[in-house]
Amino acid sequence: MNSHYKRIGAVDESQNRYQDPSMLHEHPYDPAILEEVRNDFLKKRTCKEFIDWIDSHPHYDVVAEASSQYIRGTDVNDCFWPCAEIETDWQAINSHIAEYAKEEELNTKFNTDYTEEWRISNMTKQKSYVPFRHNSELDNQHKHGFKKQYQLIEVTLTDTFLEIKAIEDLFDFHWAKTDINYQPTSGQFPRHVDFLTTGFKRAVEFDSAIANAEYDPVSKCPVGWKMVRILIPSDNWAPGQLFSFEEHSWSNWRPGQAINFSWAHCRHATANSGYSPRSIIKITGLVKDSHWLVKKQFKKFTL
């Protein structure tokens, strides 16, 4: 894992398409540059080669944009879709999250204006995880005024939320990683697509079969696998809480109504313009192509 930390600082400037630094992160991106970066992104690589490539790329934000092949007009069911319903004691879970948020002052000291890590955690295991956000993406967000995004509350690597770890287990993920995406009022996370690199890097680092597997630049997953991210609201939707998937919106959710979504292509964005903090459990992991989630099946669970 140390090797990845080192590579984060190792920028390969030969991949820099911008002659003029003032053009960096300038939206909308130059369509021709996006096409050039996309063609590079589509080249055949192993998963390990892909991680090395993206870690050293000077413009993660441009790669992310180029990696999306989303076409406006895509059906809502190809953007996000219900995948599970979990019946459990959500009231107790929400009380626990609220208590934790109070202790950690997540609402009153909401500040994500720093680059390495926004994860709320004080445990030592955190050190084995690479920062999940590439600095050029943060620079881009800061440049456009997005300075308070959300707070991530660690679940997988602590024993603080055992009841949420039990929910993680329902999905039978490999390299599962769960966080509570806690967005205090005024938080905004601008449009983006994902690479799910936090868990993916761990899989590449510790599983040579995945490291040497071909990276599929369309699914943005190792060939034979799918990386999945499930979103589960822990609480009822409150007016003003916004979650967009390009021209579509997710709203009026209820606790336990899990969705799956096209994290790889459909840009998504969140904002909490309401007056209640918003918490969504985020479970990420790898599954084989035969997994029920890849088949877009729906399951009900009771805990």
Binding site: D30, I33, G73, V218, S219, S262, K295, K296
Partner: peptide, 20 residues
């Protein structure tokens, strides 16, 4: 770097059969 004259956007892209 280039000039563009027009653009197209769509309202009803056919649903995908694949998971991606």
């Amino acid at each position: 770097d280039n000039k563009y004259e027009s653009e197209l956007y769509f309202n009803n892209i056919p649903t995908e059969k694949t998971y991606a």
